[in-house]
Simulated assay, not measured.
Amino acid sequence: MDPDVRFAYTRAMSQAEIESRLRDVGHGVLSLADGDDSYAIPLYHHYEDGTFFFRLGETPDNSKGDYIETTETATYVVFEAEETAEAAQERGWSVIARGPIERVPRSHPVYDVQYVNEQFAPIRIFDEAHDEVELTLYELQPEVLSGRQN
């Protein structure tokens, strides 16, 4: 290895640190797959009792739901990085969650409109009309949950 390459040493986060970060930072990137084709989407999440809840606005022609159905193991990454004037002083952390992702049944209490509005940022839509967007909730119960920070 080139001796001039700079490194930043990281350490594993404790379970308490991971839990705190996941409650405090409500967004990340969800990675899905369909065979050898991948799909990643930035999302807001709600983390409660070891489970991630995701709220998606789906339309008949979007592919998020299709990818979720073909994904055996989803990966969700939550992270923050603090840039500084000196690169050597930069700090950051990341949490990676891996596990199955499933649609939440409409009968589940998380579908309550007040609960959804309290737990999630407003849903972002682009060119779709409101009546074309179906609210769907998914949950990921991690089989693997790890965090690193420096």
Rank of each mutant, 00 (worst) to 15 (best):
V116H: 04
N62G: 00
R55K: 10
G35R: 04
I96V: 14
D131G: 04
I68F: 06
N62Y: 00
A81M: 09
W93D: 06
P142L: 08
E17S: 05
D36R: 11
F54Q: 06
Q114T: 15
A121V: 08
A97Q: 05
R21I: 04
V29T: 15
R23D: 08
R106S: 11
D4S: 07
V110W: 08
E134A: 11
T136V: 15
I123D: 09
T75G: 00
T84Y: 04
L30M: 13
E19H: 14
T59K: 05
P60R: 07
R98N: 05
S31I: 03
A12P: 04
H108L: 05
A12E: 14
E118S: 13
E17H: 11
E118A: 13
V104S: 10
A12C: 03
R91E: 06
S146T: 10
V116F: 08
E82G: 00
N150W: 03
A85G: 12
E82P: 00
D24Y: 00
V144W: 02
D131C: 01
T51H: 05
A8I: 13
D36C: 03
E83Q: 14
I101E: 10
V116D: 10
E134M: 06
E132M: 13
D49I: 02
E143Q: 10
D37H: 01
G99S: 03
Y76W: 00
A129H: 15
S38Y: 13
A97T: 01
E90H: 06
E69S: 15
V144S: 10
T10V: 14
Y76G: 01
F52P: 07
A74Q: 06
Y47C: 01
F52S: 05
F120Q: 12
L56S: 07
I41T: 02
R106L: 12
H108G: 05
H130R: 12
E83D: 11
K64F: 03
F54W: 07
L43W: 05
E69T: 12
S146P: 03
P3V: 02
T51Y: 05
S63T: 02
V25M: 01
G28H: 10
W93P: 09
G50Y: 09
F120T: 10
I125T: 13
G28Q: 09
P42H: 05
S146D: 07
P122R: 11
V29R: 08
L32P: 14
P60N: 07
V78N: 10
H46D: 06
Q141G: 06
A85S: 13
A129Y: 11
E80K: 06
Y9R: 13
G28D: 11
A16K: 09
L145G: 07
R106Q: 08
A97C: 04
T70M: 11
I123Q: 13
T70G: 02
A74G: 07
D61V: 06
S38C: 09
F126R: 11
I101D: 11
I18P: 10
G50L: 10
G92A: 05
D127Q: 14
L22N: 10
Y138D: 01
R106H: 09
V133S: 06
F7M: 07
L56K: 00
K64G: 00
H27P: 03
A40W: 01
Q89F: 01
R148C: 02
E19P: 03
P109F: 02
